[in-house]
Amino acid sequence: MISDKAKQQIDTWVAKYPAGCQSSAVMEALKIVQAENDGSLTSESIQAVADYLEMPVISAYEVATFYENYNHKPVGKHVIRFCHNISCMLNGADDLISYLETKTGVKIGEVSEDGLVSVKKVECLGACVGAPMFQIGDRYYENLTQQKIDEILDGLK
């Protein structure tokens, strides 16, 4: 269920915490396993992480459902996480979210037919001086305009 490569990655996190406190690595372990499984978690993958970290499955499940970064339904290859909090809203985020929906044909919370993108509205991403902004993967895209969104979408493969 968890590949050797993923286990190695998880082990580097486990090494950061005191002996016996390996469950501190659960948040990263879930992310690593999620990334290996097309961006979402299943009961089986959560169970596998709990087993690997020798922690009760319910504790891993609690973490997997408490934090926003875990997905429990299939997502697109690229998840566009659009901030719609106050500073972004004041700078036109709502209109740009509608634009993105029209442009991609993907509604908030849905996945495109080709599986390339899904769009999610998220709370403040802490880049308010670059509002309006969204995140794709590890990267932040700031000071968005319709034209910028077009260019970013064109670059997604």
Binding site: I86, S87, E123, C124
Partner: peptide, 11 residues
């Protein structure tokens, strides 16, 4: 864990 809307200095 900077996340208070409007805050982006620690980043």
């Amino acid at each position: 864990d900077e996340g208070e809307p409007g805050t982006c200095k620690d980043r």
